[in-house]
Design a binder for these strands. Sequence first.
DNA 1: GCCCGCCTCGGGGATCACCCTGAGCGATCC
DNA 2: GGATCGCTCAGGGTGATCCCCGAGGCGGGC
Lengths: 210, 210
Amino acid sequence: MARVFLVDDHALFRSGVRAELEGHHDIVGESGDAGDAIARIIGSKPDVILLDVHLPGGGGVEVVTRLLPSHPDLRFLALSVSDAPEDVIAVIRAGARGYLTKSIGAAELADAIDRVAAGDAVFSPRLAGFVLDAFAGTIAPAADAEYDQLTPRERDVLRLIARGYTYKEVARELVLGVKTIETHVSAVLRKLQLSNRHELTRWATDRRIL
Amino acid sequence: MARVFLVDDHALFRSGVRAELEGHHDIVGESGDAGDAIARIIGSKPDVILLDVHLPGGGGVEVVTRLLPSHPDLRFLALSVSDAPEDVIAVIRAGARGYLTKSIGAAELADAIDRVAAGDAVFSPRLAGFVLDAFAGTIAPAADAEYDQLTPRERDVLRLIARGYTYKEVARELVLGVKTIETHVSAVLRKLQLSNRHELTRWATDRRIL
DNA sequence: GCCCGCCTCGGGGATCACCCTGAGCGATCC
DNA sequence: GGATCGCTCAGGGTGATCCCCGAGGCGGGC
């Protein structure tokens, strides 16, 4: 029987969760705001903290970041009405081990708590994909019409410039004249609508072009 | 009925998977090595690729990284005997949407394929935690002795320079003279032991300083 | 054959990046 | 009241970057 601490600013919602979990889990404490929760969670020695993401006084991310470094055994399970990627990624990055939307049923919630307590990670369908996308860096905006406009030679130059090579070094690497490199760089900057090579570096690293 | 491509170097295992999935899924192709799989997957138009992590000729990571950039609709589900964190993280970072150990049962495998095809992510118990740990770890500010040496003003300048601003633009942004910016940049480069602003951009992006 | 895109260079000039020395001002420490 | 540190700015210099002009060769399409 896992010990559960409940953090949510809606008393009625807390009441509902308490009623549904009764008998299967041990509700060792609950709180309606972030600061209060931070102060009281440790003393309650819970196994799992059910955590609303949007809270008065700092939000769920604050609770996780304040407690996890000093108490790495705590398991946080986010439970929110929001299914926005930013919310999911933020709280998972902070160290939560799962994220459920409040549309979940009582039985699934009870099961999810047990799985998190056992060390597993639990997500509502689709939400796990947000985390994996962020992890893999697959925020690639589908069609990159601008990059497609570049000629093969221009892409060669782009890669080297983005690595911090000077024109002279690029010229030596590609066995070309420095003036040729200048021409290519100008074309790249114009086609990508950038104004200097530093923006080009950022542009390339954002798109994982090496 | 999802279209499935099977990549595993053990013919007997492929045979077993095929037998178990028959009727629920459409096995549109299979392969026993990475190079062959890369060449044939596109033509088979699968929804989900079941992928062994350890393969002759490159490994499962190679298959994902070669195909995903040009075909972002493909869903890769890793299926391996290994439950080592390095293997899990590597293939997920490459872009796979799930990871199962081969100890899984036929019914769970069929269910997992459907969930991945539907856009969800699927993990064997405990393995998801590896990914979350690695993900949370990427945010670690990494207390940096060199960065600590920078004065507040120097950090302001660093942030803007790393974004690709010219000295003049930084000066306008901070309401300062261009010469002051030069002084700060020189100090930053010296303290961080870098030689130019290109290295500075890389340094900052590696440490996720915006 | 002609046009067009790509690749390769050149001259010349404006601007930017980086470095050096030096200097005034305010705050803090002792 | 020095000493130190952070912040601000200046002059002067070299090399790198970026742009505008032009030009020749090479291949493919109409």
